[in-house]
Nucleic acid binder design. Sequence first.
RNA 1: GCGGGCGUGGCGGAAUUGGUAGACGCGGCAGACUUAAAAUCUGUUUUCCGUUAGGAAGUGUGGGUUCAAGUCCCGCCGCCCGCACCA
Length: 852
Amino acid sequence: MTRYNAKETEAKWQRIWSDQSVFEVTEDPSRPKYYVLEMFPYPSGRIHMGHVRNYTMGDVVARYKRAQGFNVLHPMGWDSFGLPAENAAFENKVHPAKWTRENVAVMRDQLKSMGLSLDWSRELSTCEPDYYAHEQKMFIDFYKKGLAYRGESWVNWDPVEDTVLANEQVIDGRGWRSGAEVEKKLLHQWFLKITDYADELLEGIESLERWPDKVRLMQTNWINRSEGAKILFDINGRDDKLEVFTTRPDTLFGASFCALSPNHPLSQELAEGNADLADFLVECAKLGTSEAALEKAEKLGFDTGLTVAHPFRPGHELPIYVANFVLMEYGAGAIFGCPGHDQRDLEFARKYGLDVIPVVCPPKEDPATYAIGDEAYTGDGAMINSAFLDGLDVPSAIRAAIDRLIEMGAGEGTVNYRLRDWGVSRQRYWGCPVPMIHCADCGTVPVPEADLPVALPEDVTFDKPGNPLDHHPTWKHVDCPVCGKPAQRETDTFDTFIDSAWYFIRFCSLSPNSAFDRAAAEYWMPVDQYIGGVEHAVLHLLYARFFTRALRDCGYLDVAEPFEGLFTQGMVCHETYQTPDGGWVFPSDVIDGDDGSRVERESRQPIKVGRSEKMSKSRRNVVDPELILDTYGADAGRLFMMSDSPPERDLEWTEAGIEGAWRYLNRVWRLITEAPMAPQGTPAPEALDDAAVAVLRTVHQTIAAVTEGLERFRFNRSVAHVRELTNALADYKDAGPTHDYVRRFALETVVQLIGPMMPHIAEELWQTLGYETLLADAPWPKADPAYLVDETVTIAVQIKGKLRGTIEMPRDADKAAVEEMALALDAVQRVTEGNPPQRVIVVPNKIVNVVV
RNA sequence: GCGGGCGUGGCGGAAUUGGUAGACGCGGCAGACUUAAAAUCUGUUUUCCGUUAGGAAGUGUGGGUUCAAGUCCCGCCGCCCGCACCA
């Protein structure tokens, strides 16, 4: 029995593909193009199973489309700027550039050993000046077009480290390393005007037919266009007005307070003369800037003592609170609270003893007695307690309220978006420098194009708190490009989401002097199939959609939607293992003990097996892909990735699963290498026996099923169908020329069908079958429709929906004949006892349901 | 808290999208080969009752629509993802 040598074979074919530049492509207008892209990795050190899953899926699609005759672009690169490199610098005293480039080198080798059909000549890395130079030019173009501006926003500030903290670095209101209580600080920051594109991005979602509905919905909700009203309240005893945004101006008569964000200028102003309020604002600041943290926190308010005049109720006053749940970034940073018809307002009102006035009466309630209990009523109904609005339904009342506000000059109808402008400044070292210069006389001016790129200096130190760019002795000191006087570079760098907002266009051509060659970009774009995790459903994908449009409007290319097809894959999970004292244990350190229970390899401590969770370093439930590639080879790993779980769902990595995949590889290997077969090119026999026809039927049905599976991203079903075919072929043991011929045809088909998933063994078997050309260049098999439908069908017979038996009938048999056969069944006779059935439902070729 | 998703045998999952629930794989059990083991092969495997024939229950949970519900509708429970400075 020959055993398949994965290691040798995989190296062999990887070398051949590389030597022959099989997957390097150029624009070819005579052929249909197909651009397959997986979200490029952050070079964190080594590839993980999530990468293996992601890149296997993309490779299956790329190889399949290639076999179908498409000119397939399938590139790879590195999202190589970002926080982890700076953390590594801090922890291991290694320079981010060195750390990053070494990681890239390791991961490139690892990816190469997966046998991916990548065009490596297009590799890019966002941390290199030949990439980010173009990004700086784009930013300046955006700036000139009014799409980039300098504004202010609040950040998490660690007063000990003297630095801005990412949300993930804030743990329970404290800096993760310093342990200091986080403060909020208002900083000057650069912004991109994504809000200018809110409507276009919203409308564009309609056209994204090959995106998952859930992602389209999430983006729609993220942008959250809402029509409502802006209301200007007169503040008693002051000259200025308080502006609030509401989607429910109809409920204005039910208002019992106004609330300001702690970051609202008025809150800040009042705190100056009110120590208690100032303390309250400090408390609010400890929550950090994450919306989730704010929303989860207990709702607290502080009565400022100020009041506003109710616009519709002369003489009526509403107190102004500062409330920790009001977001400065949304609407006007201030709200009016109507406790009767908003749950959060209701809880707030109950807590602070404010009025709860119902103004919308639900249809089944009596307006005279209707009162709000524990739940605010948010549905439609007739207005009550609302003077001129009484009796109207909600939509009419909204219009009437806005009309009156306009009449009074106290407000207007307005559209608001939850989407905010994209803050792109980061006070960090390892990112693309913002190409701007601050001059005392000329203000903020862009770096002249001739001086680009503004290279990130690598001679920096990380021994001081704060931003290394700021400490660098010379880097930030430049002459103003306008007046020539000494000026200072912007020391902020870009959000790494900018790097990933256009890399897919750069892949179209690594043009040295421009971001990309326009013709090449317009040939390859849009990406036909983009694949990555759902965690990017909103931010990355929305930024990329915006950035592409902004580039379009700056004349770079004529593309609006970058990703025509999107697939979001699930995560890779694994069981978790813990010692009795709660320490996490790597799966590779867990072995079977003498009594069959699990123990730790070294200490022999018993292991508690926990449920399967997303693989993560902190829980140590990780399996190193390299170990799998070494032990079983890339094909087995790839097959397992595609086998059991549907790609959009989480996959549970198991040792048994990978072994099963490895066994299957060897089964196919033996099936082809160990039995008689007609020589290549043997003509088809003139007559086929029943067994041969049955096999051919299975072959063609499998081609159809596998193809459909690949088209619809149901890889696990494709795998199951190929396995069924190999099972059938293992049982096909007739002797003679007909058998040998049919067998060869069937096995060639198997090799072609497994090609996209297990490319190495498939190439090797293709060669074994006598082919001198590459399977990678062979066309995809086509199913013969003549073999796709069976002549007879099995029809289920039910009595009142319960299965009582089946009948075999010719396909498309006459309804009456089917009914007669069904009623003649013993099981049916027993129940009907000769009485005519009440009703018989016949679904052709499927089912007969007898109702008695 | 808000937004989105998922839930089917011991396990991963399949079910032509309202029409025979459990394809395919893993694991288990029994057997063949072997001095033995591994590997491989054959059979079996939703649960319960029954020697068989056969019957009953069954897709997180409670209702509903339908001749027919894993699939559609309403309520609940559990888990996962995102929430703008992680990528």
